[in-house]
Design a protein around this nucleic acid. Structure first.
Length: 306
DNA sequence: TACCAGGAGAGCG
DNA sequence: CGCTCTCATGGT
């Protein structure tokens, strides 16, 4: 199971980095859509090896799709792999989710564009910080900001030879001790004040991210929105991508335009009305439908793949 | 050049 | 409450 092997070149007396291999059962799983759809910002597509490389917690992970499985190499080697199955949500059967979607033309088009897309289960702090940094930024820029942040303030991960240098996502406590000026050097602009403010409060225990998992969605949303830089949309992203609250339906510019275009082609609909439409129309797993629509809209717009 | 980007918050009437 | 403006920075 945890077949660890030494990788890396025959270099001078340095300790050889160990990586572990594993294989996950993942039927009807669209890894490409899942990792490129804009819910997580740290995955890189390596064309030469046809693989995705990213960081999950303290592990640097390389993923490849083979038939109905996902082949994994992880550094350092892992004892068990429950953390990765949880992150990728490979045990979730997508059929019942897809069946819960409304049977209309836009939804059918979205599902056929990325059938097998999963919602990840991300670390709450990383997800929260990432979406604080996302406001009025294009996804390519968000990725760049987060890469700089991790490079400068995350912990270095020892990886096999030939892999890109990898870093963990910096903790709230770590970022709380970074000045706003230094944060701005990561190209995040006015978001630096928000990120620092939220890091301070999370590090102080003023907002218990772990405890939010115990609260009903409405109360958890209220708590998240008490943090600086966290409004309704960012809170919903965190609820959906980190806490698995499938009823959360993030309303961003893509969805406002897309829902208007797809469902109300010839009249102007207010944001509040659009939100109520989404709540009733897409059902208790509306967040899943939202991500399918979001990815579908971005693909239609020919947004460059990562 | 002008406009926009997975928004939020403050300042208005 | 609902509207408008600003906030950095980079891409098209």
């Amino acid at each position: 199971m945890n077949t660890a092997k030494a990788t890396g070149g025959a270099s001078e007396g340095a300790v050889r980095p160990l990586s572990g291999f594993h294989s996950l059962t993942a039927p009807d799983y669209d890894l490409d859509s899942t990792l490129s759809c804009g819910q997580a910002f740290r995955w890189h597509w390596i064309a030469e090896s046809q693989a995705w490389i990213g960081v999950v917690g303290e592990q640097c992970v390389r993923l490849q799709t083979r038939l109905d499985r996902i082949e994994v190499e992880s550094a350092p080697a892992a004892e068990d792999w429950a953390w990765l199955r949880r992150y990728l949500q490979t045990d979730l059967h997508i059929d019942s989710v897809l069946r819960s979607f409304p049977d209309d033309a836009p939804m059918r088009a979205a599902v056929s564009a990325c059938r097998g897309l999963r919602l990840l289960r991300q670390d709450p702090w990383e997800c929260l910080a990432s979406f604080i940094l996302s406001s009025t930024k294009q996804i390519v820029q968000i990725r760049r900001i987060i890469a700089l942040l991790c490079e400068r303030y995350g912990k270095s991960i020892t990886v096999p030879a030939g892999w890109m240098p990898a870093h963990t996502f910096p903790s709230a406590a770590r970022l709380a001790e970074v000045s706003e000026t230094d944060l701005r050097q990561c190209k995040m602009g006015f978001r630096a004040k928000y990120l620092r403010g939220s890091a301070l409060r999370v590090a102080k225990g003023d907002c218990e991210l772990t405890g939010l998992g115990e609260l009903p969605t409405d109360l958890a949303r209220v708590e998240l929105m008490r943090l600086p830089g966290v409004g309704r949309k960012v809170a919903d992203c965190v609820l959906l991508f980190a806490y698995g609250r499938l009823e959360a339906f993030p309303m961003d510019v893509w969805m406002i335009r897309g829902l208007g275009q797809l469902y109300f082609p010839r009249r102007q609909v207010s944001l509040d009305r659009l939100r109520r439409f989404a709540d009733t129309h897409f059902g208790p797993q509306g967040g899943f439908a939202q991500q399918y629509l979001f990815h579908y809209l971005r693909m239609e717009a020919k947004v460059p793949k990562l």
